[in-house]
């Protein structure tokens, strides 16, 4: 498939925003059961604001993918059948809940405003955060399923696609949270850093699994089934057009093989070992620069990862577009 930059930005930005929010909420939940010291409201409020900025950035990028962005509201219609439609509904929901979560922290609201007394610190934000976390996971699943549900894009048609979206987004968000915590919540830096490393390594396992799976994939369609002639040697002599068409532009990545292959190694290095090393060095050396570099490198790596994710998918329609003529 042709990797569209708008979709690469969309999926990586919302992944980072969702991951950051999950990190914030994890920190807050741990502090309620007193596993971690509680943090200032400002920390959560500012963190939520950053997460919202990432998510809105992703949403904005997605509009560039549409031919008719002014009709985008229509895309909420078919949520019963379309994962894309579901994503369109869940994304604003996530943004809204995270914004609400940040606002409740900022205004230090709790359930008392509804006349309920629970004696739990931050009961309201915990509730909103729980809803937000559910919606965040829902959004990860929607994003992943958009790709995983197309059965003839065999490289994508696997639970690994959804798992990778969840783990890669969360890893990126936790790495960002590590650097962000240096400002507002120094007690949490090690906690976030450790989780960022663990999730990054987990994502390495699942992403590697999908790479191995895809390397061994046997495509079900061939020219034989495409034109219904049973012969082991079929060559295309003409695709019916001399210039390009939508079919030759949208479904091929159009880069030389060496480039395609090097992107794989670039992302494998930038998303996994380098950020882990930078995180470790940053945590041990108390260096904010190193922690931020870890996030920037990992995000850049994820851009490459997403490019590769699209480029690697082999659409069966390409069988019909092998030779110009």
């Amino acid at each position: 498939m042709h990797p569209a930059f708008s979709v690469i930005l969309l999926t990586t930005l919302i992944g980072a925003g969702q991951g950051l929010f999950l990190a914030l909420y994890t920190g807050e939940s741990y502090s309620v059961v007193e596993l971690l010291p509680p943090q200032s409201s400002q920390f959560y409020a500012l963190g939520s604001a950053i997460a919202v900025v990432f998510l809105i950035g992703g949403l904005a990028a997605s509009f560039f993918h549409l031919g008719h962005p002014e009709r985008a509201w229509r895309s909420a219609a078919m949520w019963r059948t379309s994962w894309l439609s579901r994503e369109v509904i869940v994304l604003p929901l996530v943004i809204g809940l995270i914004a609400l979560y940040g606002l409740a922290h900022y205004l230090r609201l709790d359930l008392k405003i509804f006349g309920v007394e629970t004696n739990v610190r931050g009961d309201l934000t915990l509730l909103i955060g729980a809803a937000g976390s559910l919606a965040t996971f829902g959004l990860f699943i929607c994003t992943g399923m958009i790709y995983a549900c197309i059965k003839f894009l065999q490289e994508w048609h696997s639970p690994l696609t959804v798992i990778n979206y969840i783990l890669l987004g969360t890893a990126c968000g936790f790495t960002l949270a590590t650097a962000f915590a240096v400002y507002g919540a120094p007690d949490l830096v090690n906690f976030y850093g450790a989780w960022a490393i663990i999730i990054t390594l987990a994502a390495l396992v699942t992403r590697a699994a999908s790479l191995i799976r895809n390397a061994r994939i046997r495509h079900k369609s061939s020219l034989r089934t495409a034109i219904g002639v049973r012969h082991s040697k079929i060559t295309q002599k003409s695709q019916g057009l001399m210039g390009g068409s939508f079919n030759t532009r949208e479904f091929f990545h159009g880069t030389p093989l060496w480039f395609f292959r090097s992107v794989k190694w670039i992302f494998l290095v930038l998303v996994f070992p380098v950020p882990v090393a930078l995180l470790l060095a940053g945590l041990l050396g108390h260096s904010l620069t190193l922690l931020y570099t870890a996030f920037v490198v990992q995000y850049a790596g994820l851009l490459a990862e997403r490019w590769f994710f699209f480029a690697q998918a082999n659409h069966p329609q390409n069988l019909y577009y092998q030779t110009v003529g």
């Binding site: 197309i150 949208e250 479904f251 659409h315 329609q317």
Partner: peptide
Amino acid sequence: DKCIGCKYCSWACPYGVRELDE
């Protein structure tokens, strides 16, 4: 009049017969 040009349907057709009008 309803299509937003998201191209998703063209990805979901194995035969490559949908074309986005440029």
